[in-house]
Design a protein around this nucleic acid. Sequence first.
DNA 1: TTTAATTTATTGAATATTCATTCAATATTA
DNA 2: TAATATTGAATGAATATTCAATAAATTAAA
Lengths: 204, 204
Amino acid sequence: MKTTIREERKKEIIRGFYDLSRLEGMENVSIAKIGKHLGMPPSLIMHYFPNKRLLVLGLISHILHQYQLIYKPIINKFEKDHKVYPELLVNRLFSREWNLLFDDGVFFSCFAMTFRDETIKREYMKLHLKLRDTLKSILDRDPVFSKGDTALLAEKIFVVIEGAYYYLSLIGDEKEYNRKLNIFKDQVFQLLKLESQLILEDSE
Amino acid sequence: MKTTIREERKKEIIRGFYDLSRLEGMENVSIAKIGKHLGMPPSLIMHYFPNKRLLVLGLISHILHQYQLIYKPIINKFEKDHKVYPELLVNRLFSREWNLLFDDGVFFSCFAMTFRDETIKREYMKLHLKLRDTLKSILDRDPVFSKGDTALLAEKIFVVIEGAYYYLSLIGDEKEYNRKLNIFKDQVFQLLKLESQLILEDSE
DNA sequence: TTTAATTTATTGAATATTCATTCAATATTA
DNA sequence: TAATATTGAATGAATATTCAATAAATTAAA
């Protein structure tokens, strides 16, 4: 276990960076602040992350990993089943229990960096492709949906999910939030319903 | 015209802030840099914007105003007509000529601030409500669509537009970009078609 | 197994640079 | 004459990063 201390410390630092970003906003977090927060000198942070960009890159991997985890329970649920129940799927795709575990502000701060850093852009791209692919494989296991273009359907579903994720983040009022959330859930539900109708009609 | 110099200068400063943000990323733009870029001392900037937050707020108003302008030609086109041609509408909603006039990186940098600043959040919210309202009023002028829930339809359309705006910004490859763009255009087209079908069926 | 050598982890002080902001003085306009 | 616009110099605080020194852990030699 040569690298155990090293890896532990790196994780600890990124975790501290994330926690502070959540509290104060990413653009207001400095290496000195992370050091103070974790009770270590800034020079130790620089020892593990030789410059700030590498630290930011580390945070982004962390964020994207966390984001991906959100969809883990969805996958697990559907891994046993070989049939997709649209209501169930929609509810899970829009479930926001994880909201407590994940900071949207940090996510979008990192996303904004996408426009100035190709490496970061690729990381985000990879995540989005993976999410679509996961949904595709869920649909592929269903006897009906697998007859259609599951990749296409996954694209159409995720564009609504992500548009909703973006737009709903602006809404403070809970009632209004839920009203709109239900609109978008219904919209995805319609996509699923329409697709299965078309497939069933074709096979007649 | 007492305030003409004042207002001109403020515009100039915000314009400089925007230009630099575009070039170097918003988080890397300081008051000193704006000053150098415009050939004026930082103290003059502080004269018009007593602190940086006010300057950022000014930039955000500018951005959101520009963003809104994107949809001006769409509105103008449909203001004369009292009929909505779905293909035409979709093409215009997804038209990206304005991409050259508008920096997405700055837009999302400002959007990220939404999570830490209620004033900024409200500004963004206002913009999004206005865009939906504009589309609603276009649909309201159409004899068919006006019989349905135009506000609901506008929500469903914009969530796709905004999801696409977000997602497509990650895609560099032009072919792939256009392939996906067409998927989302088709998706909105389907929303419009389905809605008019339902209305026409109901009225029989 | 103990010791010596070497690599890695940690510290704290110091660096130059950049940051937003202040201020008093001068120039311009109303 | 009064208000506003503009300048340039100065501020202290915060920034990322460097460096030399010490402590701890790991490896190699005895």
